[in-house]
Design a protein around this nucleic acid. Structure first.
Lengths: 114, 114
DNA sequence: CAGGATCCCCACAGATACTG
DNA sequence: CAGTATCTGTGGGGATCCTG
């Protein structure tokens, strides 16, 4: 029998959500307010294509973290924003930002010592 | 020119560290104190083989998050523990645990409504 | 503008066998 | 006990082309 811990263990569950290569960055960008599709892509590193962005957004939407709001107009306008449970993720983002910066500093100290 | 954000942006850098399928769970287990290799495997979900665990540990060690301490004895004994920068990650783990539990609750509420 | 459809490709997890 | 070596399969990202 396989132990399926998704939906049971908070760590395994979180890890699953964060699998996407850009998930954290996307959530961070959306945490600062709703953003349109193209604008989102512009703010992401260049190597990410819109096809990839599209997939990641759809996944995050299916997981319930973000909301897709489509304005019925020509030309099309679609805004993405955090859902309620997505907004709660901001505490994780804050912790990640702090730790990430610490880690970057540590990296530089280490590199300069060799 | 490619924007390489690893080592610059805290979010991209964090994401990179967390790529491994079990990284968060491993860091959590180690946050409770040093653990030996086999014990670590026993506490992880069954589907993970020791080959996979070995690779993940080596990666985390190379990234500087964990420390491998080998006791010179027969039979061998190796303990893994968090490094200094690894211990700082615990604030992220706490945030993840809280959010993960919230998300699990949210999942169940959502599921029961359909 | 905001995507969908395809194809390709590879990193990485899993399985198995072997070792000091 | 604590690994390494090797093979294999697959999911997911990148690239390119097409569309309402």
């Amino acid at each position: 029998m396989k132990k399926e811990l998704f939906g049971i263990c908070p760590y395994v569950t979180s890890q699953k959500i964060l699998t996407g290569k850009w998930s954290i960055y996307i959530l961070y960008l959306l945490s600062r307010g709703p953003v349109r599709f193209n604008e989102l892509q512009r703010r992401l590193p260049e190597e990410m294509t819109h096809a990839t962005l599209s997939r990641q957004l759809k996944q995050l939407e299916e997981e319930g973290l973000i909301i897709r709001h489509e304005y019925e107009q020509i030309p099309p306008k679609v805004e993405y924003s955090l859902s309620e449970i997505g907004e709660k993720f901001e505490t994780v983002l804050d912790a990640l930002e702090n730790w990430g910066n610490d880690y970057i500093q540590w990296l530089q100290k280490t590199k300069s010592n060799e």
